[in-house]
Nucleic acid binder design. Sequence first.
DNA 1: TCAATTAGGATATTTATTATCCGAAATGAG
DNA 2: CTCATTTCGGATAATAAATATCCTAATTGA
Lengths: 183, 183
Amino acid sequence: MANYRCGVQVRLSNGVEWAAHAAILMAGLPDRHGIRAERLAVYLGVPPAYLAKQLQAMRRAGLVESSRGAQGGYRLSRSPSDISLWDITAAIEGPASIFRCTEVRQNGPCGLDARDCRTACGIAAAFRNAENTFRNELASVSLANLADQMLTDIKPDHIKYSLEWLHAESLPMPKAASEKTGD
Amino acid sequence: MANYRCGVQVRLSNGVEWAAHAAILMAGLPDRHGIRAERLAVYLGVPPAYLAKQLQAMRRAGLVESSRGAQGGYRLSRSPSDISLWDITAAIEGPASIFRCTEVRQNGPCGLDARDCRTACGIAAAFRNAENTFRNELASVSLANLADQMLTDIKPDHIKYSLEWLHAESLPMPKAASEKTGD
DNA sequence: TCAATTAGGATATTTATTATCCGAAATGAG
DNA sequence: CTCATTTCGGATAATAAATATCCTAATTGA
């Protein structure tokens, strides 16, 4: 009892996890092949309409390319070794930082004048620092790294089964809508 | 136009910022002196009832001591150099990690068996890693560091004014309720 | 021309955060 | 002892954000 929780939770949205898994799957497709959004959702067991949101966010960030219409689908727009976990996170979560300084030091009877608050207060600076290390750590992990690790972690026959499923769903994508510039 | 935002925001609650500011203020009180919660809220210009929540969370985490009743109040329970920004963050936000793995790899037609998921998947491991660096960075900043920096950043006459305000509000706290063990 | 598929937004639902309030317990002072 | 004061702990309301679904339009290959 007394299981009170005044403490607040801070989490990333699941969208980041889903987007990362989807990106790793696309890294496993044959060269220049894509896959339908709905098929990715089935493979991952997540709501199709919501995964589509994450795919659109990744497309706006330039991580994936899409083709509409029959035979349309998604594929990575860069090599898996050129896409980091930070790229995915930033695409889904946006550029906002974890800590938001509300300039408390300007409040109250002893509040500072805004002119004296050009430089960040120590608290904000420390959090900015910590966030940079967080970001750099994620930036050092690529989709290629993650795919490699997955191949060593999972049993060979399961890998074979999964790749067969994926490749059977893959679609040739000679050109992508996001790539075309009116030529 | 087209200022859509499908991207999601991730932030810490303001409680962390307020708690940190409150803790720095308490570090500026005379030795063995405390201050009423309501006075802290006035100084910081934040809602008293909500700051009280953060103070209670810090008390449960052992960072501050409180005394009830007339002449009651809060004071730090350790030296400012022994309390880190991570201590504050953990006290307010709780132990939950930023990234939450929902074991997507166990979903769908090619889902792994739970028995094969003893070790964390690469994505979860990478986030755990990044969070560790984030935490360590915050752990390296103490209240004493922050207070020192504040003293160098702020103009001397403003420091004087603020300390006078604080010291006028300070209360002697020979013993703290959280400290007493029934002796 | 038609069927299939993504794009973009509207919108509902659920969850988390922010904020306030009140009774109970504790304490120092008179 | 009694009383005014103040924190404690929880209940609960209000606001904001994340999660999820659906629909119409645009695009494309067959």
